[in-house]
Amino acid sequence: MREQSLDEFESIFEQASIPVLEIEPVTLARVAVVLKNDALDASVCRLAAHLKTRFGSEVQVHYPDTLSKDSVAATTTVTDFAAAPAAFRSTAELVGQVSIGRSQLVLMPEPEDEAGRVVSVDALVEGTSPPILLVRSEIDEPASVFSRVLHSLTGSFQQTQNFSHSFTLVEDAGQVLLLHVVSEAEVADVRDAMRVSPEVDTEEGEKLVEKLSHHGERFLKGVVAAAREAPYDASYRLAVGDIVETVRTELEAGGYSVLVVGHHVEGHSHISADDYQLMHTVRDIPVLAL
């Protein structure tokens, strides 16, 4: 009984402590650019050049071997990347190159026309560890890409690493909104399960759901406080509903310049089904899949 009480009180005090977070910027020493012989190639190169200036990144260009070296040179000539472009024959080979090159961010145009796609985004996301920025529209002003970031949070996100990319990439005067959408369908499932379970008291179950949202909010408060301390212009919003729909509504209303989805924990990407859906369907602004 006493052991139980010790656990109980330790957990009460542990929960009473709002996490004091430090947002550690991620390193962007190596950035990979994937060309596709697309109109967007130039936009991606411009963005890479901008990141090179901001972070001193070394940019490695990868291109499908169906492209001639001359056309690659023509695309990249204005950007003055030091490393020689590397040709790949398949997505698998590109995955290998990105991994060997220890790239920390992949920039990739993704044409709307499926026939024009030489790289499978899903295979690249699954096969490589760095976050991938998918560019689907022309970028005239690279500095505008990370001026207003919408970071969508789903599932378990209680690690600051998840936020580091957004806060590292956001421009000096930029803003980050952390949007956590609790899936209404999942909450309903949990409630149904509690209702039929003889082990769980319904009132206690409701309290549990409330507690979880409350803890999530406390964590977000901690992140925003730490971000503001850094200082970043950050805010958060909690919502309950359909994840994809809520994010899309927020995108339409908020005038965001980039959407960030997924988790990036200890060097590995975790993309949920909702994140995949957003990654593939949001086309008017770039999407960064962590």
């Binding site: 009480s5 010790l6 330790e10």
Partner: peptide, 18 residues
């Protein structure tokens, strides 16, 4: 005394860890 020690002891452990 036991309850007093459990409450303060638990807080002490958490605070010292932080």
């Amino acid at each position: 005394n036991i309850t007093a020690m459990i409450i303060i002891g638990s807080l002490t452990v958490v605070a010292c860890r932080k």
